[in-house]
Amino acid sequence: MTPHVHIRLTVNDEAIDVAFAPYKTLLEVLREDLNLCGTKHGCELGECGACAVILDDQPVLSCLVLGVECSERRVTTVEGLATDGRLHPLQQTFADLGAAQCGYCTPGFLVMAKALLDEHPHPTRDQIREALSGNLCRCTGYQQIFEAVEAAIVQPVTRPARATASTASARPVKARS
């Protein structure tokens, strides 16, 4: 076995040291070496979008990022979307509006949608369609996903400039649970 490489990176706002086999992609490092299995995979070739994560503010496909290239970088995965014990507004709306059926593509969609709202706080339906066009979903037909993203836009309270700071705002859709 080739010796492991050892890097330090920030995952979901925590500095982490990790050692892994040098051929591994970020996807494999997250799932197998950091036990963050929320990031999924459907092809490992960039053909489905299930493995999307945010890397230094940009959503990318973790299946095509070399682990060795992640030293000193910041990664946000689905596990990092909720803050201070509260789900991200997108997680609330996805849960309430039927945007997650089997839930397998959901982490990738959430990550892409978060990146979209961080950059464009009030996207149009066309912008949402376009921003999510690199993520395949076989369950929903996408419509309830679009609606969930739109529901996360319309906040009852004045939002701060960046969506990332607005996670403490009220839940957009009343849920039972």
Binding site: C37, E79, F94, P107, R176, S177
Partner: peptide, 22 residues
């Protein structure tokens, strides 16, 4: 209309699919 019972697990990435078992 009601949030499905397994929705929270799915939107937080905590649903354990078969390949998530280590």
């Amino acid at each position: 209309p009601r949030r499905r019972v397994d929705a929270r697990a799915k939107v937080t990435g905590q649903t354990k699919f078969a390949d998530d078992i280590m």
